[in-house]
Nucleic acid binder design. Structure first.
Length: 307
DNA sequence: AAAGCGGGGCA
DNA sequence: TGCCCAGCTTT
């Protein structure tokens, strides 16, 4: 059980709603997937790209993507190789393949229209709890809890008084978010994006701009004089240099710019031959690359999957 | 619950 | 260098 900041009464919650929604009206970024006529597909593509990739890098990629594949049916007709090249360096290229698969399912099972139902969205590949809620809310005005890293941080500070939310999402967080959600659907959808935007622009992870925050006077973290992150020791940053992830990225980057990579050329990409073989096998398993073989079944090289 | 999965930019 | 970014899937 949780409450709104200050007190659980309807007046305080309503004040908070009004304050943040008004702030959003004045400060929202002008993003192409937020225009009034944005389709479910436009929103879905943006949400998949925004899974762990910042807005500034997504925006140009989204424009190019939507120009090339304006509907799910358009993407469903594309090859994996085309899709992976268009994904370029957004990171986590499996998202590109899953988006293509989602498009194929949307065509096959939903008449080519991105579904509005959260459960139907959740059943699509690459769409988890967050993305399903985001598409339902932002594309179709549904009333649902949208809980991303920004909302978790804003509510964690504002309501729970913590510097940063726990490493993994907890039930109490979604209960808090649910308790804060405006009743009217369209208003709830705007509330979700408004809180998210506040987290992205003002209540940032590194250096929050409390001087610019419309609800600073309601913030429990601020009221408690900014206690330190209690989960700091539990957060561990993953290594990068020399990892499989780096090796995978190097292979994909090479195949985005050349049609085929001979076994000799592949070997030049990475110093550890044994690790490289494991990485190539993993990439094949993930359908991110395909091995080319001669008549005897000996691997001669690798390509991006043509289908 | 934890691990694996990219890549870039900034303090 | 460490940390963060509109997370999802698999074990």
């Amino acid at each position: 059980m949780t409450t709104a900041p200050d007190c659980p009464c309807a007046d305080c919650t309503s004040t908070l709603h009004e304050t943040i929604l008004t702030w959003y009206d004045d400060h929202a970024r002008d993003l192409p997937w937020r225009v009034p006529g944005a389709t479910g597909w436009a929103v879905l593509v943006s949400e998949i790209m925004l899974q762990q990739t910042p807005v500034v890098r997504v925006e140009p990629a989204w424009r190019a993507w939507m120009h090339r594949w304006p509907t799910p049916a358009d993407l469903a007709a594309a090859s994996p190789a085309e899709v992976l090249r268009a994904w370029d360096r957004l990171g986590y290229p499996r998202r590109a393949l899953r988006l293509r698969e989602a498009a194929r399912t949307i065509v096959a099972e939903h008449g080519g229209v991105v579904p509005a139902d959260e459960a139907a969205l959740r059943a699509l590949p690459g769409i988890g709890a967050y993305t399903a809620a985001a598409v339902a809310a932002f594309a179709y005005g549904r009333r649902t809890v949208v809980l991303d890293t920004n909302v978790r941080r804003v509510l964690g500070r504002l309501v729970s008084g913590m510097a940063l939310p726990p490493p993994s999402q907890r039930r109490a967080e979604s209960e808090t978010a649910a308790a804060m959600l405006p009743e009217e659907p369209e208003r709830s959808a705007r509330w979700n994006v408004a809180v998210m935007e506040l987290g992205a622009l003002v209540c940032t992870a590194r250096s929050p701009q409390c001087g610019q925050c419309p609800v600073a006077t309601h913030c429990r973290w601020r009221a408690a004089e900014y206690p330190a992150d209690e989960f700091a020791t539990a957060r561990r940053t993953q290594a990068w240099h020399g990892t499989d992830r780096q090796a995978r990225g190097r292979v994909l980057a090479a195949l985005r710019t050349q049609e085929e990579l001979g076994t000799h050329e592949v070997g030049d990409l990475w110093p550890d031959a044994g690790q490289l073989q494991r990485v190539l096998a993993g990439l094949c398993l993930d359908r991110l690359i395909a091995a080319e073989t001669d008549l005897d079944g000996v691997v001669t090289g690798y390509r991006l999957p043509q289908e």
